[in-house]
Write a protein that binds this DNA or RNA. Sequence first.
DNA 1: CGGGTGACTCGAC
DNA 2: CGTCGAGCCACCC
Length: 112
Amino acid sequence: MSDLYSRIYGVVRLIPAGRATSYGAIARYIGSPRGSRMVGWAMNQCHAHKEYTPAHRVVNRLGMLSGKHHFPGENVMQELLESEGIMVVNDQIQNFDQVFWDPFKELDEISI
DNA sequence: CGGGTGACTCGAC
DNA sequence: CGTCGAGCCACCC
């Protein structure tokens, strides 16, 4: 596993419950602005990783559950999000602007 | 090496 | 936030 993938999983695990971010945001944070599709691919392989990765907190830039079909059940991803307090209607996160978790903004405050 | 694929994104309309 | 087209890059034949 490349170091880039370790960073992807590392960032995803830092997403707090009740929040969500986008593939592109993670890609930019790990230094691959054009690697959003790789983040999706990494999530596809996250089950092979030893540590738990909350892939349900990663959606596309519009807050849509684009990866729900890759979960064990039909609405597993939505139920996971709703169990954390995120409202999901029609495969789309409600109030995504409030739920959105920006790695740069949130993590910079800590690292500064 | 080349072509197909995808849990993406951007710009246009 | 609908669609379409193009760009993107790791992975798998």
